[in-house]
């Protein structure tokens, strides 16, 4: 039993985690005819809290309660993974990525998220504005404009052979590559004050 727990605490390889994540598609379809997707939950929260008579938010969000419970579950799952099943060892980031990011001022590679950017102790106003406020806004605006995120388009959409989802996924990647290689170096240097 202890061995199983120790094994579960280690990072899960892609060939275990990927198929398990993919099973979410048939599980949601079969337990309640639901199409897997996460970003819609943001729309439902807007519709529930600040609909402001906007047509896009004027619908019966209570019918989408399943989706809100699903994302509440993700929060709980994240908590369990970081407490009961927490990884005793530090994160192993690819050497080449470490080299690239060191050149941009990232110094600590031990945790899932860089401590310099994602902790209350080390954060500063430019990090807050760029990495949480701007980044989060782009994620919320972009996913809704695209009609889905990595779950709804990349996994659910491509699994069901939807052309528009393949297009969306390609543009997710292009956006990420453009940000990483063109803008992120400047943003990181600005935020970290180097």
């Amino acid at each position: 039993m202890l061995e199983i727990m120790n094994w579960l605490r280690e990072p899960w390889p892609w060939y275990i985690a990927g198929p398990l994540l993919g099973l979410t598609v048939p599980v949601l379809l079969l337990i309640g005819n639901k199409s897997f997707g996460v970003s819609s939950s943001l729309r439902h929260v807007c519709a529930a809290c600040v609909p402001a008579k906007i047509p896009f938010f004027s619908y019966n969000w209570k019918k989408e309660m399943w989706n809100l419970l699903f994302v509440a579950g993700i929060v709980i799952g994240g908590f369990l993974a970081a407490t009961v099943l927490t990884n005793p060892a530090s994160m192993v980031v690819a050497e080449s990525t470490q080299t690239d990011l060191r050149a941009l001022g990232i110094t600590n590679f031990n945790d899932l998220l860089p401590h310099q950017l994602f902790s209350w102790e080390e954060t500063n106003w430019s990090i807050v504005l760029i990495f949480y406020v701007l980044g989060g806004f782009l994620v919320g605006f972009g996913t809704r404009y695209a009609g889905g995120c990595t779950s709804g388009h990349a996994i659910m959409g491509i699994s069901t052979l939807q052309g528009p989802s393949l297009v969306a996924t390609i543009f997710f990647m292009i956006g990420g590559i453009v940000m990483t290689h063109l803008f992120l170096p400047t943003l990181l240097q600005f935020a970290l004050g180097n």
Partner: peptide, 23 residues
């Protein structure tokens, strides 16, 4: 899917998270 997808991609690389991972 093109414009919004691109914008989401920009945000994904900054936050390191798509919506599921944010939660």
């Amino acid at each position: 899917q093109i414009i919004g997808g691109f914008i989401f991609g920009l945000g994904w690389a900054v936050t390191g998270a798509c919506p599921g991972p944010i939660f």
